[in-house]
Design a protein around this nucleic acid. Sequence first.
DNA 1: CCGAGTCTTTACGCAATTTTTACGCGTTGA
DNA 2: TCAACGCGTAAAAATTGCGTAAAGACTCGG
Lengths: 230, 230
Amino acid sequence: MNARIVIIDDEAQIRRMLRIALKSDGYEVVEAENGEQGLAAVVRHQPDLVILDLGLPDMDGHHVLEELRGWSRVPVIVLSVRSGDREKVRALDAGAQDYVTKPFSVEEFLARIRASLRDYNKPDAPKRLDDGHLCIDLAKRQVCVAGRLIDFTPKEYAVLTRLAQSPNCVITQTQLLQEIWGPGHEQDTHYLRIVVSHLRQKLGDEPAEPRYIRTEAGVGYRLVFREASQ
Amino acid sequence: MNARIVIIDDEAQIRRMLRIALKSDGYEVVEAENGEQGLAAVVRHQPDLVILDLGLPDMDGHHVLEELRGWSRVPVIVLSVRSGDREKVRALDAGAQDYVTKPFSVEEFLARIRASLRDYNKPDAPKRLDDGHLCIDLAKRQVCVAGRLIDFTPKEYAVLTRLAQSPNCVITQTQLLQEIWGPGHEQDTHYLRIVVSHLRQKLGDEPAEPRYIRTEAGVGYRLVFREASQ
DNA sequence: CCGAGTCTTTACGCAATTTTTACGCGTTGA
DNA sequence: TCAACGCGTAAAAATTGCGTAAAGACTCGG
């Protein structure tokens, strides 16, 4: 989960300071001391964010940003001693997420990094289970069986996704009843049997030899998933 | 294409300057001179960006941001005379996209607005949906059905486009009510039913087997789109 | 100040979902 | 062997939520 950050800056001092600050915040850091190295590092390490100094020895920082934007939309925070409007406008319009002028406060800089990562990495958790036959898309709230979209009632969907959250693990009856029907329904196990029955019908599961929802007698249920992706 | 921007600032001078600069760049501008007015304006005008001054007469700017983030993810650029790290870190971590210290360069400020608008409107949000029968153009704010332009009331349009921003995903009733009717209306689900009813009529959708707006009972609604083009 | 358009309130028929009730089947243990 | 128990299924009854219409309240521009 630790974000990876590429620093492109020719000053070893700045790199050192940033590296220490970033690592202590749990980021993975990759350093590059010129534009060419920087672009190579972005290709190689696929970072979640890039810190780019405009004053590089081999090529103009604006040029680096321009080239980068030709094939990547990774968020870039530009760093510069130059504080002229023109520079800032140019960098921001070229696709930089933010522009920070040296000298800067480390705390503020880290906060700007957090903001960039947060805002950019929004579509990050498309949780999905798919084994070719059954596909559960938690983000879209959609379930397919053999390519067919299936409709579920709220309770049915809740039970199925609760099981899907911990594939291949037994979820106890009490747990399911408490979490879905609310406290005070721990004894109503027949609700569960009915819902599971409907689920198996819609999933094309035979209760004698169920492919997906296995019964653990007296305990609870388990969703069996072979090729579970993350 | 014209983005709408809400300015929340108590100083008429600053508002005036921003208004002139923003309008000359083609933005639609709405002004508010305190926090309460500002929040109301965001609910009412559904802006694409918010400019928020931290020094407001009625409530703390941080508090405004906090409340706003409870129900909206519209990008916010914070404006302040205070330049302390703590302030900046707090605002950025609370969900601000950017933090600009007064006095500031108008050119730079406009560039930061362009950057925020550009970066925020990127994630998986197609500006235009078209399946041959229904065409939703979010940029032009136009909707066609079978080649005919359709008129919608503001609420109808807001619901439709909110659904269109995440095609094929369920948007919960609470989400729709909070984002469009504002906080405090989470329970008024019948508003939604009425608006959806009107939308289906205008879209030529039968509620029994809806082609476009599908009901997820007890949860929310989903805009079904097969051939979503760019 | 008025009227058109919009939003809110109110009301009611209908459909879907949940809960209740009932019954058959296999396993287990006395 | 058979009674008790947990499970699965199928129906009903009850409850909840949905869709629509229509009337009153509100807003805004002229």
